[in-house]
Amino acid sequence: MKRHKSLYPLSHDHHHALVQAKNLRIASFGSDITSLHRIATHFIAYWDTDLQTHFRQEEEILLPVFSQYSLRDCQEIIETLKQHVDIQQAVSQLRKNIEQETALAGESQKLSALLSMHIRYEEQHLFPAIQEIVPEEALWEINRHFTEK
Rank of each mutant, 00 (worst) to 15 (best):
L71E: 15
L71G: 12
R72V: 13
R72H: 15
D73P: 01
D73V: 04
C74Y: 06
C74N: 09
Q75L: 11
Q75E: 15
I77A: 00
I77N: 07
I77K: 08
I78K: 11
E79L: 08
E79F: 11
E79I: 10
T80Q: 01
T80V: 09
T80A: 09
K82P: 05
K82H: 12
Q83P: 03
H84Q: 05
H84R: 01
H84A: 04
H84I: 00
V85Q: 14
D86F: 04
D86K: 09
I87V: 15
I87D: 00
Q88C: 06
Q88A: 14
Q88I: 04
Q88L: 05
Q89G: 02
Q89C: 14
Q89K: 10
Q89D: 10
Q89M: 07
Q89I: 08
A90C: 02
V91S: 06
V91L: 03
S92P: 07
S92H: 06
S92G: 10
S92I: 01
S92T: 05
Q93C: 15
Q93F: 10
Q93A: 13
Q93K: 14
L94I: 13
L94G: 05
R95Q: 14
R95H: 07
R95P: 05
K96P: 06
K96E: 08
K96A: 09
N97A: 03
I98T: 06
I98F: 12
I98H: 08
Q100F: 05
E101D: 13
E101R: 12
E101Q: 14
T102Q: 14
T102L: 09
A103I: 06
A103Y: 08
A105H: 14
A105D: 13
A105V: 09
G106T: 06
G106F: 06
G106W: 00
E107R: 11
E107Y: 07
E107M: 14
E107C: 13
E107P: 05
S108H: 01
S108P: 00
K110R: 15
K110F: 04
L111W: 07
L111Y: 05
A113K: 12
A113V: 15
L114W: 07
L114C: 00
L115V: 03
L115S: 02
S116A: 12
M117T: 14
M117R: 15
M117F: 13
M117Q: 15
H118I: 11
H118V: 06
H118Q: 10
I119H: 04
I119Y: 06
I119F: 07
R120M: 14
Y121Q: 09
Y121T: 09
E122M: 05
E122A: 03
E123W: 04
E123M: 05
Q124M: 10
Q124P: 03
Q124A: 11
Q124H: 14
H125M: 08
H125G: 00
H125T: 11
